[in-house]
Amino acid sequence: MGSSMSWCCGAKRVDQGFVNGAANSSWRIFTYKELYAATNGFSEDNMLGEGGFGSVYWGKTTDGLQIAVKKLKAMNSKAEMEFAVEVEVLARVRHKNLLGLRGYCAGAEHRLIVYDYMPNLSLLSHLHGEFRGEAQLDWKRRMNIILGSAEGLVYLHHEVKPHIIHRDIKASNVLLDSEFEPLVADFGFAKLIPDGVSHMTTRVKGTLGYLAPEYAMWGKVSESCDVYSFGILLLELVSGRKPIEKLPGGLRRTITEWADPLISKARFRDLVDPRLRGDFNEAQLRRVIEAAALCVQGEPERRPDMREVVAIIKGTAAQGEGMRIESIRYKEDLMAMDQNSDDDIDAYAYDVDDDDDMRGGKFRRESSVYGVFGKMDVQKMADPYVGYGGRREMVHG
């Protein structure tokens, strides 16, 4: 699970007529026979995408419900764990901006998770993928996606118990229903955080360009890591640019490197996606950029929490005087591993065996088109949690 792709996103676009599962808390256990029939025998014609975990198929149940079925490829301890985590998290969440669980199948030889199919696919498909030329994301829709996704993260971080860290916030994991309402999806990497715990130390999984530096360097994950990723997503939504873009001569630049000079000089209009043709709300734009700049600060204690992010975007928080991104740049060797270009969204997954240390593992090519998994080294920085003074305990997971 925790894949380098979003299961709903692929070249296939199916007729609309689905039921929004995020608003419907009912889920059930499916039989393998039911899902086999719904997907036409897991036919290649029904395949929506493929990743390291296996494949995802479009299907239709006997009562007419359109579904997406994630079918696990391997039956090993890692895959079993990620399957269990995703099912547990999906069964817990009840929010209109989080993709809920439709059901699952856990037979002797099969592990499958069932979701509702999202007819407008993912945010990635509209910003950089097959629908990027259709200009369906006007400013109003972008603001709705921003606020809806943020509210979903507020629920995960502050309302559900135990709190949940997503760990893979990115454009391909923000799904869009028939009305372009956002649903945050793919909880295979999620971590449940007990009360009183500030952060956890864990193996690094995520997508190059979105990973917070303290997570990439130290494997220390907290709600602040999701905040960082959300800040990158805000810049991506405003500008239409990728988190890492390819420059002439093979160089690569992060979206924060591109945006920082413009933000520091208050050239906010120059940040806006040209596809909007100048049709946007300047006051909202400033608030979104302020939120983004705060979210991507290199030191986690300088970032707002998601409740504060929502307040900034809505204009109910005090507005800052000046803005400046103080982030951490990825090292050149890591940047060189990124294979994204304007016309090619390849994926590289990072494999970590149980006996690998934090600098072990290897990259492998994915057949997915949804991002770059990687454990990264970045420029030296102080351990961001030393200043916490033992205020709350750290746990390993």
Rank of each mutant, 00 (worst) to 15 (best):
P248N: 04
L176G: 02
V369F: 10
G219L: 03
R324A: 12
E223R: 03
V238P: 03
M143N: 12
P261L: 01
V288T: 05
A135Q: 11
I165S: 01
L233V: 00
I164Y: 09
I232D: 03
S368T: 10
L121C: 05
G249E: 05
L247I: 05
D305I: 11
M200C: 08
F18E: 15
E282C: 00
K246R: 15
K78T: 14
I145F: 09
R287K: 13
G148E: 06
R364V: 13
K242M: 14
A185Y: 04
T61Q: 08
I29S: 13
D15A: 15
D138T: 07
F30Y: 15
R241M: 10
L121F: 12
F83H: 06
E80W: 06
T201Y: 08
G371L: 07
E151I: 06
V310T: 11
A216R: 04
V154K: 14
H163E: 08
R132T: 09
T31Y: 07
L153P: 01
K140V: 06
T39D: 01
L251Q: 14
N20A: 11
Y104G: 00
L48F: 05
G374Q: 13
D305G: 12
S239P: 09
P261S: 04
S149Y: 08
A108F: 05
V184L: 13
Y388P: 00
L251W: 04
R302S: 13
A74Q: 08
V221T: 07
K73Q: 14
G103E: 02
A84R: 15
M376E: 06
T62L: 15
A171S: 15
E151Q: 14
Y228S: 04
F373Q: 05
S26W: 14
M5T: 10
E301G: 05
V85W: 02
P182T: 03
L211A: 14
G21R: 15
